[in-house]
Design a protein around this nucleic acid. Structure first.
Lengths: 335, 335
DNA sequence: CTGAAAGCGCTAACAG
DNA sequence: CTGTTAGCGCTTTCAG
């Protein structure tokens, strides 16, 4: 591997001069600049980022914390898309992206130590188990950090307007004549509470009494096909004309179970999802859902993190982004 | 940030001793070892990987080259799952994973320079445009590298037995009484040719003449809904009782178009996919397809790369892995 | 405009 | 068993 010394020797100058050329710092004569650049090219010189990190005290790398299991993490369209936009934004600013897996045992599961060892300039908690001690510790650390759907207020975080989204979705069902609406809530995390509140708010606005039996509890999609949600539904005591599933995947995988139970989605039962991943569009009938704005989430997280790294002021706590009602064919107008 | 010098001072020994403790190298008295470890813990010491990389001349990082656009890259279940297993395997060996995006402009799109600057110990080309100059250059470079579905023989690569997979799938259709089978081939890359060959082989074995008009050409799934494939199909001159789509996503998104054209999948038309991503199972009717073994692909790639990094001999050229026929409900027995 | 020199934090002989 | 020392490749004052 050739170094700045090699090219300095070739050009008959010092390594400092070469360094300055590459950093566009200091005043270097146009002539020398050209010469340096040319011989660098000719010799196939590439800077050593490790050496640079060492002296600059910054790695130019950011980590993305990702819990990965059967169904979550990158397999999930929402997270994949957020990551994609986040990545694009950071690349523009010359940052490298390092995957920090929540399953990783490299540092004995201590993410904070892991990130500190890498001297990461920042961390994006995209998909993680916030209740775990290791994540807590990371969030409590002093690395610039933004999170998605975080329960903690001490660091900047971003998420969708889940309350409004769920309210709008419920409202849409009500507008379509539904009054017996069962809500299957997802994993017990703050955003789920927001959605439940949104559901209740919509009912209230339309003078429909909330009934505890219509609120079912399960988790977000996992690879056991999400049929657990439908089992719950089918064994619930209350009759219903519409069912709100916790997410698109669960909803779509429920189509099959509902059919087996004699329902026809979009006809004698109305179904909704949440997230707006593109499989909803492929499903038949097309799923009515709330789309989360993955683009804005990813770019927003990137922007906030870059600002934090640059030492700018970024407000702690949640930033909530608009969602959009996506009208498919899975809701039938009744009454 | 505290360094080995800080902890050396605390322990009244030299930095070398501390270093040795952390590297489990050299002989250090149990007593000193304990002391060093304890004060390290107490002071919150974390090694600086950049410094270590610099002196060791290896980064302990591997890159994953990923082309990301609307539909590809992480959004695709197959790639996401391969990456997941690859990651898991590398983590066990204490490697960090850096995402190298094929869209990245950081190094003027020169992946090889990018990877060399990072001093990556190895690279996995998971999803990339092999025909591009930059990828060619990377593959031609001297960084340990393995690829997925690579057209180049000069480096180790891994892929499914596409010939056998397509043959088996075709055969399954034939076993179910189909003789008018249209094959919609995907993007024009080597694996597509293998699949076409497999299709032809199955026909031949069963004495069904191959007809050029039954071979349609499109690309793998992209977000324009894959309906292009179905357009092609519907405007093709030959009658058909079965259609083999290039991949699961295209097949599933075709359900809608086929229905619009008056077909009922699994009844008056039989449909197959390719890949075995889990959405095939959610679809109704469940998709009959060929499952690629993402687990083995990911782990295999990891294994090969680790061996390469360790200087072991790894054969160049393709390693082909078994696939599995997944029987769904999208194929109707006829005749 | 250019260069000398002092590190960044760590490792790896080599001595002792 | 422990310490000395010479870098790894680069940046950054500070002189000149």
């Amino acid at each position: 591997m050739i170094t700045i010394y090699d090219i300095a020797k070739e050009c008959g100058c010092s390594s400092a001069t070469v360094s300055k050329v590459f950093n566009q710092t200091g005043n270097i004569s146009e002539k020398k600049r050209r010469e340096v650049l040319e011989t660098a090219q000719r010799l196939g010189y590439v800077p050593n980022v490790a050496a640079r990190s060492l002296v600059r005290q910054r790695s130019n790398m950011v980590g993305v914390l990702l819990y990965v299991d059967e169904s979550l993490g990158l397999r999930h369209g929402l997270f994949a898309e957020i990551l994609n936009r986040f990545r694009a934004e950071l690349e523009k600013n010359n940052y490298e992206i390092v995957l920090i897996s929540e399953k990783g045992e490299t540092w004995g599961g201590r993410f904070l130590d892991h990130c500190r060892a890498l001297r990461l300039d920042g961390v994006f908690c995209l998909c993680c188990k916030y209740e775990s001690e290791a994540v807590r510790e990371l969030i409590g650390g002093n690395i610039p950090l933004v999170a998605f759907e975080s329960p903690y207020e001490e660091k900047p975080s971003i998420e969708s307007k889940n309350f409004e989204g769920a309210r709008r979705l419920t409202e849409y069902l009500i507008e379509n004549g539904h009054r017996e609406i069962t809500f299957i809530a997802g994993t017990d995390i703050p955003i789920t509470h927001d959605r439940i509140a949104g559901y209740k708010a919509a009912l209230k606005e339309h003078h429909i009494p909330f009934e505890e039996e219509r609120l079912l509890h399960t988790s977000f999609f996992s690879n056991d096909r999400g049929s657990r949600a439908t089992e719950l539904l089918l064994s619930s005591p209350k009759p219903f004309t519409a069912v709100m599933y916790p997410d698109d995947y669960t909803a779509i995988s429920a189509y099959r179970d509902l059919k087996a139970a004699g329902y026809r989605v979009g006809e004698n039962i109305s179904v909704t999802g949440f997230d707006g991943v593109n499989f909803g569009e492929m499903a038949m009938p097309k799923l009515t859902t709330i789309r989360q704005d993955a683009v804005r989430i990813g770019e927003g997280a990137a922007r906030m993190l870059l600002d934090l790294i640059d030492g700018k002021e970024v407000p702690c706590g949640k930033t909530r982004l608009e969602t959009e009602l996506v009208i498919g064919e899975s809701v039938k107008k009744i009454g």
